[in-house]
Simulated assay, not measured.
Amino acid sequence: MVPLLGLLTFLIGLPANSLALWVLLFRTKKLPSTILLINLTTCDLLFLLVFPFRTIYHFKGNNWSFWEPFCRIVIALFYGNMYGSVVCLALIAVDRYVALVHPFGAKTFRSNKNSWCMSTLVWIAVAAAAVPLLVSK
């Protein structure tokens, strides 16, 4: 059941997130929330790119048949971007909270610069979380 759900997630999620990223990059104004959504969509796309390999792994009875270092890369991308998506969602929630509950304070907190800084910190955290997965067998 897990491989079939992974395959379905990949088949629906890849085109949907690709379209969302295209729209966010080329058809919307670059607001603070848009920058955070671009990062969330990028995390989700990277997460989806490892689904076919995880699906093949599960279809083969949890037997990895690819190159061993590639297994580490797939696991690092899988977990790193899963955590990245969660943190991006949390930042979007905080951004929405500040915009709605503290509209006057939001003018100083909600800026493109702050959104880029927060996004950069998310990617640094994702990379740092992936390092142990990349170096362990």
Rank of each mutant, 00 (worst) to 15 (best):
L46C: 00
A93Y: 12
L91I: 03
R96E: 08
T55D: 06
C71N: 08
L45Y: 07
F59V: 07
I56K: 10
Y79D: 12
I75G: 08
F51P: 01
N81E: 10
L46P: 00
M82Y: 08
Y83P: 10
Y83S: 13
I92T: 13
S65V: 07
K30Q: 14
V50N: 03
T34A: 15
W67D: 08
L77T: 12
E68C: 02
N39M: 02
G61R: 07
L100D: 15
P32M: 03
M82P: 04
Y57M: 10
L40P: 05
L37S: 13
P52Q: 05
G80E: 01
V86F: 12
V74C: 02
S85P: 07
K30R: 15
T42C: 01
L31H: 00
F78E: 11
G80Y: 00
L36M: 02
M82R: 03
N63K: 07
H102R: 08
R72T: 11
L77D: 12
V101A: 13
T41M: 02
N39S: 06
T55I: 10
F78V: 03
P32F: 01
C71Q: 09
L48M: 12
I56D: 11
I92L: 15
N63M: 05
S65G: 05
A76S: 09
K30N: 13
F51L: 13
N81I: 02
F78W: 13
Y79C: 12
L77R: 07
G61C: 11
A76I: 06
I75T: 14
L40Y: 04
W67H: 05
L37R: 14
Y97P: 02
Y79G: 14
Y57S: 04
A90K: 04
W67N: 08
L77N: 09
A99L: 07
L100P: 05
A90F: 08
R72P: 10
G61I: 08
R54C: 03
Y79R: 09
L46Q: 00
I35M: 04
L100N: 15
P52T: 05
F70W: 13
H58A: 09
L100E: 15
L36P: 01
A99G: 01
R54E: 01
E68R: 08
K60R: 14
F47C: 04
H102T: 04
V74T: 00
Y97C: 09
D95M: 04
F47K: 07
V86S: 09
P52R: 03
L46D: 00
V98I: 11
M82V: 02
R96K: 09
G61M: 11
Y97K: 11
L89Q: 10
N81R: 09
I75P: 10
L89P: 10
P52C: 10
